[in-house]
Amino acid sequence: MKREWINRFVILDYQHAYRLVFEYIETFYNTVRLHSHCDYCSPGQYEEQYLEKLEESLKLVS
């Protein structure tokens, strides 16, 4: 996080640091950044693939 995000800014105070960390986690890390435990997909892509597989398996059962 420090290398990818925080070092781009001059941190003014604790509140500013808090907002920067929150923004990084909510807008990039949890949505866009690739994760090895998600087969190198972003969490959003991984969730979409999971839901597609779930829908397909429900169609097969019906």
Rank of each mutant, 00 (worst) to 15 (best):
F28T: 10
I11N: 03
E56M: 09
F22P: 01
F9L: 11
Y29M: 04
L54W: 01
H37M: 03
L20S: 05
T31M: 00
V32G: 05
V32P: 02
D39S: 07
S36F: 08
N30F: 04
V32F: 09
L12D: 14
T27Y: 03
H37K: 06
C38N: 04
E47K: 04
E4G: 05
E47F: 06
E52W: 02
K2T: 11
K2E: 14
E48R: 11
S62E: 14
Y29K: 06
Y40R: 09
I6K: 13
L51P: 00
D39F: 02
Q45N: 03
Y24N: 10
W5E: 10
F9W: 14
Q15H: 12
L51A: 03
E23P: 04
N30P: 02
C38P: 00
Y14P: 03
L34H: 00
L60K: 14
K53V: 02
F22V: 13
Y29C: 07
V32D: 04
E55Q: 14
A17T: 11
E47Q: 06
F22C: 14
H16I: 05
N30S: 08
C38R: 01
V61W: 09
K53W: 08
I25D: 05
D39L: 04
R33G: 01
N7I: 13
R19G: 07
Y46N: 05
E4M: 05
